[in-house]
Design a protein around this nucleic acid. Structure first.
Lengths: 162, 162
DNA sequence: TTTTATAATGAATATTATTCTATTTATTCG
DNA sequence: CGAATAAATAGAATAATATTCATTATAAAA
C-alpha cells in the first residue's frame, strides 16, 4: 500500500524536521527538478503518508506551564465516555489514547498550573459520563517531545543530514 | 515577556493547524498587508513563540504500528540515566518526560509491533545505565493526538474559524 | 518488441516572499 | 498637552518560488 523509495524517505525526513522547506530547496537537496519534487510531495499528501503540517508553539507563551498525563478509568456501559469518546473534546487535551488491559484512557493535557488542572478536573472532566477513577501524573520536566518518527535512511542519506 | 495581541493569537491559531499557509493568505485572512504579516511572523519566530514547523507522517506508512508508553524507574545515582538523560536518544523514542513524585521517566515510543518492542527493550533500553524497573503500557487505539495548544481567541475570531 | 503507465525534465507563467521607503499609529517624556 | 521617539503598517518594486504543461525518459506489462 505504501511503497516508499529512498527519495520519499528523504523527503519525509527533511520535511518532518522543517515543514516549511521550500519545494525548490527540497528539489535541489535531492538533485531533481522542482516539478518532479512537487509531484512526489503531492502524492505523499494524497496517499495520506504526509498527514498534516503543524506549527509547534511554545506552551509558556500561551501560559500553559503545566503538563500532565491522566489515566482515566471509565465504565464500559452504554452512554459512558468509553463509548462516545467525548473526553477528546475537552479543552486543553492534546492526546487521548485507549490503553490495553485496563479499559482506560491515557490523556495528555496542558493547563496553566496545578490549580487550573484541579479546576479543569472539577469543571470539565466531571462532565464526562461514566468515569470511575483517575490517576494523575505531573510532568516535572520534558526532556524530549516530538511527533517525529524514526525514518530508516540509508547510510549515505544519513550522512548528508550533517 | 510574551505579550500577544489578538492578531498574534489568530496567526498562531491558523499556523498551528496549517503550518504551510502562505504568508499572503494569512495576510488576507487577517486583513493586513503581506509585509506587515511577515514581520509579525518573523518576530514570533525570533522570540521563540513559534518553535518549529513539523510534518506529521502516518506511522503506518513507516510500519510503526505499535505505540507504547513506558514508565522507566531509574536510580538517581551518578552515571545513571537519571543524570545524563541518555534515554531520549534511543531509536523510536518520541517523548521523554520526567515525572514528579516517583523519580521516573515516562517515555512514548513507536515500534513495528509488540515483538519489536520487546526486542527494543532487550537491545536498546538495556544499554541505559541505572534502570530499576519498567512498566509498559500498550495503546490499543489513539482517539486524538496533536501538539496543538488551546488558543484563547475572542468569540468573533472563533466564529471566523468556520 | 510493442504497448502502457509512471516519473522526470525544462520552460513558461502565476503566485508568493521579500525588501525598502513612506506613512501611520502608539508611546515616552518634557 | 504636545513634541520626540519608537513601533507597526501599507504599498510598490523586485526576487524567489510554486505551478502548469508539453516533451522526454524510464520502467513495467503484454
Amino acid at each position: 500500500m505504501f511503497d516508499l523509495d529512498d527519495i520519499d524517505l528523504k523527503i519525509l525526513s527533511l520535511k518532518q524536521e522543517n515543514a516549511c522547506i521550500s519545494n525548490s530547496e527540497l528539489a535541489k537537496e535531492l538533485g531533481m527538478a522542482p516539478s518532479a519534487m512537487l509531484e512526489r510531495v503531492r502524492k505523499l499528501e494524497k496517499k495520506g503518508i504526509i498527514q498534516s503540517y503543524h506549527t509547534r508553539i511554545n506552551p509558556i507563551a500561551l501560559n500553559q506551564k503545566l503538563l500532565a498525563f491522566i489515566f482515566v478509568k471509565s465504565s464500559t456501559a452504554p452512554n459512558s465516555c468509553w463509548q462516545d469518546n467525548s473526553i477528546k473534546d475537552l479543552p486543553g487535551i492534546q492526546e487521548v489514547h485507549h490503553i490495553a488491559g485496563d479499559d482506560c484512557f491515557l490523556i495528555k493535557i496542558r493547563t496553566e498550573d496545578s490549580q487550573s488542572l484541579v479546576k479543569w478536573m472539577r469543571e470539565e472532566l466531571s462532565k464526562i459520563q461514566g468515569i470511575i477513577s483517575t490517576r494523575t501524573t505531573i510532568v516535572l520536566e520534558t526532556l524530549k517531545e516530538t511527533t517525529n518518527l524514526t525514518i530508516p535512511l540509508t547510510q549515505n542519506e544519513n550522512a548528508q543530514q550533517h
